[in-house]
């Protein structure tokens, strides 16, 4: 069942049509990467899912219930981590989680228990200083803890890693990895390597439309290119190889020491190429069957 269903959603600000009639479903249990350039409308879409912005047209369903602007009934299923989560600087992390816990209706014992577990998970268990002294990465991790406090079925993260250093990014991705399976995650980003690391589905938002969507495996299969890359130690090696390869070189592109071959059938071409390499006694630095990358797909649909 789709935990989130967006149907024919549109939104414009003045003359600027940010979201133009988009539809997509997010099945339960998936990790959904929502990709788009800065200003593509990712945050706008998320805010509409949370009922913080009214859509111009279209409907959104969370766990089968319709989202209404301003009314927050569907939000009980959702945990939300804003792109830059803001807290009360005069509070300490445990105090903040207690406030959140009381608002979602946890009793004191449950709330303490959950807070403890979550602070442990996000690595803030021993931090007792006030939130005003937190680094951006710490705030992001506390944001993750508050989003997960009510054990939501759907976690929506708005660019959780975009402003963080490599270590901070890794920490957030590790946390997300820990909760997948229990919680469906929607995660907007423009960092494509993050999508490859943790997502199993993605949609690309471009020009207000969904330019591409599906599971990563399907998308890769659909955009399979049948290309093989060989990297040689020297340019001379490459020339010797090219001379021997004959008509395999028909669809080849070369740089100094690299050769990319477009082939009709990957397996037989591999055999043939390896045979040539061994018979000519050329030892390549790299021999790779090229998979379509998310970056390649993204550039293809957004350009």
């Amino acid at each position: 069942m789709a935990i989130l269903s967006v149907q024919r959603l549109s939104k414009s600000f003045g003359n600027n049509q940010v979201i133009d009639d988009i539809s997509f479903d997010v099945p339960e249990g998936s990790v959904f990467g929502f990709i788009g350039a800065n200003g593509a409308g990712k945050t706008t879409t998320m805010k509409m899912i949370l009922g913080l912005l009214p859509p111009d047209a279209g409907e959104i369903f969370v766990c089968g219930e319709k989202v209404a602007f301003g009314a927050t009934k569907t939000n009980r299923h959702i945990g939300y981590l804003p792109d830059v989560p803001q807290f009360y600087g005069y509070m300490r992390p445990a105090e903040y989680l207690r406030l959140c816990g009381e608002i979602v209706g946890l009793n004191a014992a449950e709330c303490d228990q959950r807070s403890k577990e979550l602070l442990q998970m996000v690595g803030l268990a021993d931090v007792s200083k006030k939130i005003s002294g937190f680094s951006r990465g710490m705030k992001q991790r506390l944001g993750m803890a508050q989003a997960l406090l009510n054990e939501p079925r759907l976690l929506i993260c708005d660019e959780p890693t975009s402003a963080l250093d490599p270590l901070g990014r890794k920490e957030i991705l590790d946390i997300l990895k820990q909760i997948t399976g229990k919680t469906t995650v929607i995660f907007s980003t423009h960092i494509l390597s993050d999508v490859e690391r943790i997502c199993d589905r993605m949609a690309v938002l471009s020009g207000g439309k969904i330019a591409l969507s599906g599971t990563l495996a399907d998308l890769r299969a659909q955009h399979q290119t049948n290309a093989i890359l060989i990297e040689f130690a020297t340019a001379a090696d490459q020339e010797r190889f090219a001379a021997a390869a004959g008509n395999l070189m028909q669809n080849a592109t070369t740089t100094d020491t690299e050769l990319t071959l477009q082939v009709a059938e990957v397996a037989s071409a591999q055999r043939e190429l390896l045979h040539i390499l061994s018979s000519k006694d050329i030892l390549p630095l790299k021999f790779e069957v090229l998979e379509p990358t998310i970056e390649g797909l993204y550039l293809e649909v957004t350009q």
Binding site: Y80, P85, Q86, I103
Partner: peptide
């Protein structure tokens, strides 16, 4: 202006 209510309102607190 600081956006501190977003976390709480998305937790279902009535406006």
């Amino acid at each position: 202006s600081r956006g501190t209510l977003v976390n709480l309102l998305t937790k279902g607190m009535k406006r």
